[in-house]
Simulated scan of single mutants.
Amino acid sequence: MPVIEAHLLEGYSEDERQRLARALTDAACLVIPANPDAVTVMIREVPKANYMRGGKTRTPAPARSDPCDQIRAYLAAMEARNIGTARSMLAEGFVMNFPAAPGLRTLEELIAWAKPRYRFVKKAYDNFEAFQQGQATIIYATGTLYGEWPDGTAFENIRFIDRFEMSDGKITRQDVWNDMAETKANLARAHN
């Protein structure tokens, strides 16, 4: 039964402390074959007056935003075609890899590439997951696509997985996998 004790400078919200406790629990279970219910996490707050580093009293760094919330906001902005908002969430050097379209660098490239493929597409989300890998935050979004083909015919229930990488609160990479081509091929076979 792992017991993890963390010490934080006071100033973090209850929600932020709970996010940290969940992340520490998940990290323990990644390495130690323990049921999450068997992992104990204790967070002790240290008053700022009782802490110094380098002979100076310090203020805690602000907690990072929930990366899943950031990705939800990005995807919502893209779906609404609020390109300025979506662009503001991207890091310099951002790259997107879509099926049959690797290496897209701008949102305008993505829109131009997608235009002949469908009239519109939206996502129904099943799950968001995030974890830290070194300096990068990795986020997965899974669910299904729905929308209209170029001829106006509706489609739905097309599976997708989006994988994002973030650094310093900005999206650096997006990789997309979906069954859209498979669905189109099945429709073409059914009509022949």
Rank of each mutant, 00 (worst) to 15 (best):
D66C: 14
F128G: 02
K115S: 07
M78V: 12
L8V: 15
L75P: 01
T40H: 14
L24R: 01
A77N: 04
L24F: 09
E14H: 11
D37T: 08
T40R: 15
K48M: 14
V39N: 05
S13V: 06
P67C: 07
A21L: 08
R64W: 02
P67I: 08
A38C: 10
Y51C: 07
A28R: 05
C29V: 14
R81C: 02
T85M: 08
I43P: 04
R44H: 15
A27T: 13
G103N: 05
A77G: 04
R105F: 04
A124K: 08
E129K: 07
D126P: 00
A49C: 07
R119Q: 11
L104F: 11
K48C: 08
L8F: 15
V41M: 11
E129R: 10
E129T: 12
R22S: 08
P60L: 03
A101H: 07
E109A: 09
Y146D: 07
D15V: 13
D37Q: 10
T57A: 14
M78C: 08
I43R: 00
Y146F: 15
A86N: 06
I71D: 06
S13A: 09
T137H: 00
Q133S: 14
A49H: 10
E148K: 08
G103K: 01
A34Y: 12
L8H: 10
P150F: 03
V39K: 04
F94L: 04
I138E: 00
N50S: 14
A136L: 06
A77Q: 05
A23N: 12
A27Q: 12
G11N: 11
Q133P: 00
I43K: 01
Q132P: 01
R105N: 03
Y74G: 05
A28Y: 09
Y12V: 01
A28T: 13
L24H: 08
S65T: 11
A130T: 06
A130V: 02
T40F: 13
S88A: 13
N50I: 00
E92G: 04
E10V: 04
E45Q: 09
K48H: 09
I138P: 00
P33D: 15
E109F: 01
E10Q: 14
T59G: 06
T144R: 05
G134P: 05
V121K: 00
N35S: 14
R72D: 15
P150W: 05
R72E: 15
L75R: 08
T144M: 03
K115Y: 06
A38Q: 12
R81K: 07
I138Q: 00
S65E: 15
F120K: 02
A38F: 11
F131M: 09
P67N: 09
P60A: 11
T106S: 14
A101G: 10
K122F: 08
A100Y: 09
G93T: 04
A21W: 08
R58A: 13
T40I: 13
M78G: 05
P102R: 04
R81H: 12
F128V: 02
K48D: 07
I83Q: 01
C29I: 05
I83T: 10
F94Q: 02
A49K: 07
L145K: 07
D26I: 05
E16M: 04
E109Y: 07
P150T: 09
G93Q: 02
A141L: 04
A34H: 13
F94E: 03
P62D: 14
A124M: 04
P102W: 03
F128A: 01
D37Y: 01
A28E: 13
